[in-house]
Structures are given as structure tokens and as C-alpha cells.
Design a protein around this nucleic acid. Structure first.
Lengths: 80, 80
DNA sequence: AAAAAATGATCTTTAGAAGGTCAAAAAGGT
DNA sequence: ACCTTTTTGACCTTCTAAAGATCATTTTTT
């Protein structure tokens, strides 16, 4: 699954959602969804603006947490 | 800006867009947009499925390239 | 306690992914 | 070379969730 660490990042910096909205122009509803991890999509512009604003990399904001590998990566040069 | 390295990842693995569509169920149009970096949004489920399928982390797929950033402490007395 | 600010909830609008189809381009086989 | 199959790009319609706005509640500040 994809984890969003916006709440942690804001907490560490003692920032409020309203601060981020005010300073970046990102919609408050969007930030709220990311904060509470209820967002299902994200605009790349938003990711970019958050990385700029928080001065962090994408991995700090979004993390892929491997749960289980259902199917291994396919081999390309054996067949096909 | 946010760079998407799907084309590189597929190239390295000698995979075609059609392979990914077939194996992951991700919409071909979505993959095409990510491949050509014309996507403006992305579903978190898609990122997750791609990381699982390509057995890679999010940073391998999406990269934040710092270009310019907001200055937290602008200079007032510079002699420009 | 009052005022201001921040947040959660919800509604409508808008943008773009999902899903499908068609034609052109590659790839494969005879 | 030819023909067939697969892949891909382009386009259209449908559907979903972010954008934008507003209201009520909660929290913070004075």
C-alpha cells in the first residue's frame, strides 16, 4: 500500500493544514484527505508543491509499504 | 517537478505497456500517460500496483526533481 | 467569555483517469 | 516480400475524486 506521511511531516514542523493551504495554495480539502490518508488520487502538482514547501523528497511524503508479493516480476528475455 | 521513470523501468526490464496492462490490470491509457509523462494525476492504487509488479520502490518510479524552492527568509537589503 | 481561526463535513463543479473503439505502426510467421 | 497478429497512439464517452465553496463545530487566542 501507499502510505502518506503528511501528518508526520506537518507534526514535525509544527505546521497546520491551514498554514500549508495559505502558503502553497493547495486546496484545503485535498490536504485534509492526504493528512487523514483518505485520498485515492493525487495530482503531481500537489506532490511537487508539497516537496518544495516541506523541503523534502517524495519518499518522505509517500511511501510504498510492501505487504506481500502475489506474483514475482516476470522475465522478459525468456519468452515473449 | 515530478518525474516518472516508468519508461526507464519498462525499458530495463524489456517490458511493453501491453505486458503491464495484461499482468496488472492497470488501464492502458493510464500507463501510456505515465510512460510519456503526460499524466497530471495518479491513483495511489496504480502506484502501488506498479511497485508490486516492478518490484521496486516509489522513488524508482516517481522522482521529485528540485528546481526552485520558496525562500523561507527573503533578503531585504540585497544590493541588486 | 468573546472573537478569531482551524477543522470536519458536505455540496456542486471541474478535471482527468477508466473504459472502449479505431487506425496506424511494429513485430512475427509463412 | 506478403499477410497476420500485436502493440500503440489518438479519440470519445463515462465515471470518479479533487477543486472550490460554504456551514457548523471545535480549538485557539485575546
Amino acid at each position: 500500500m501507499i502510505k502518506c506521511h503528511l501528518s508526520r511531516l506537518l507534526g514535525e514542523r509544527k505546521l497546520k493544514i491551514s498554514d500549508v493551504t495559505r502558503d502553497t495554495g493547495i486546496n484545503r480539502g485535498t490536504l485534509t484527505r492526504l493528512y487523514h490518508e483518505t485520498a485515492e488520487r493525487v495530482e503531481l502538482d500537489v506532490l511537487d508543491a508539497l516537496c518544495v514547501y516541506l523541503n523534502c523528497g517524495l519518499p518522505d511524503l509517500l511511501e510504498y509499504q510492501k505487504s506481500e508479493q502475489a506474483s514475482p516480476a516476470p522475465l522478459a528475455d525468456s519468452n515473449g
